[in-house]
Each structure stands twice: as structure tokens, then as C-alpha cells.
Amino acid sequence: MIRVKNINKTFYLPEPIKALNDISCHIKAGEVVVIIGPSGSGKSTLLRCLNRLEKPDPGGHILIDNIDIMHPKTNINKIRAELGMVFQSFNLFPHKTVLENINLAQIIIRKRSKSDTEKRSMELLEKVGIPDKADVYPGNLSGGQQQRVAIARALAMDPKAMLFDEPTSALDPEMIGEVLDVMKTMAREGMTMAVVTHEMGFAREVADRVIFMDHGAIIEEGTPEHFFENPKHDRTKLFLGQIL
């Protein structure tokens, strides 16, 4: 589904900082991959490279469904429509109601009819548990509710895979659960997911595979059992020791 080959990313601020260093990894269809690591390790950058919100350095390949998004002729908008993304800060459109937020891209990108769109949107609001908030503006919702709307907005495009960029990091502790529950349901239904998170409980329970990153490189990857009970690398042990 997603295959990353030898990707580098350098930020110029203005002195060059290597955020990703020769990364290669893959995510199979239906797989839930959780990426963890300390801050500044490049995990968010890697995720954002997958739909080219961040443009990797020239060279290397990122294949989404066998289409190389590093190729200059690839229509990135088509690819992005197939990859739902959920952000740390929700990024709902504040001038549109919840329903309009979910409707918009269905209408202008998927060219769905108004009635099909509204039907799909209400289905998704039902799924994330807040159908009663359809006509409310995002500013009047709690953080957890906003993030669930953001998930519904991404799902409305019927994406082939979902990317989550620290979806619970900006939430109050009592709201983290409701967002994680929605994500767990999606995982159970077989959605392909790449999740950058600090929620180790979620990683252990839902992930098919865990990737640990530090200093722009993948240090270790494996099943959650292997990862949490019997990590090989010293850096991984140190990290897990600090947070568990």
C-alpha cells in the first residue's frame, strides 16, 4: 500500500538540519503501523512526507498504491484524496459548520450529489458519536469532539489509508479516550493506518507493527509484543524506560 525507499529530508533554518536520514519502510494494506519516538526524531516529518505536505529531498521514492509521488508528473491532489490525514491541532474550518466541514471535499473533489454527500456525512457523524453536533460551528466543540469531526472529515473521502499526526497530543486527558475509541474501531474494520502517537497503550493494543525512530532514522521495528517486552536496541530500551 505505502512503500518508502531511501527518503531524506533536510530543513534549512537556514542552517541545514537533517530531519530524515535514508528512511525505508512500508505499510501493507489493512495494517496499523504506529510510529513512536522522542520529539524531534522525525516521525511527524516522515508522516507528512507520505502525502507530500512536506517535500522530501530529491532522490528516493514514496510509492502509494504503486504510484511514485516523488515523480514530478504525479498528480499529488489525486493521491492526497486517497490518504486521509488527521492533525494534532484538528484544523477544522472555523467558518463552516461541522456538517459543511465534512461535506465540502466530498462535493468539490469527489463530485458527489448534495443528498449523497449529506447522507454519507451523517453516517460518519453517527460513527464518531456526535450526530447531534451537525449544525454547530467547530469553535463550540470540545477538543475531543473537534478531533472526531476531523476524523469524519477525512473518512468522508473514503480514503484507502489514514495518516494520524499525534491526534491526541492537544487533548485534555479525559478526551483522549473518545478519540482513541474511534481509531480502534477503524482499525478493527480493516483501515490501513499510520499513526504517530505517544499513546503506548494504543500502540500495544491496536498496532500490527511499531516503528521506533530517533534522529531521523528508524532504530527498531517489530510487533508490539516484541517491542514492549523485549526491545533489542539500547536507545529503544532507554526511551521505553523513560515513558512507561
Partner: peptide
């Protein structure tokens, strides 16, 4: 970013 990630130009 949110708009572009949904596939908008």
C-alpha cells in the same frame, strides 16, 4: 494543510 490534505488544489 487540512484543505490540501483532502485533495484540494
Amino acid at each position: 494543510e487540512a484543505a490540501r490534505s483532502l485533495g484540494m488544489t
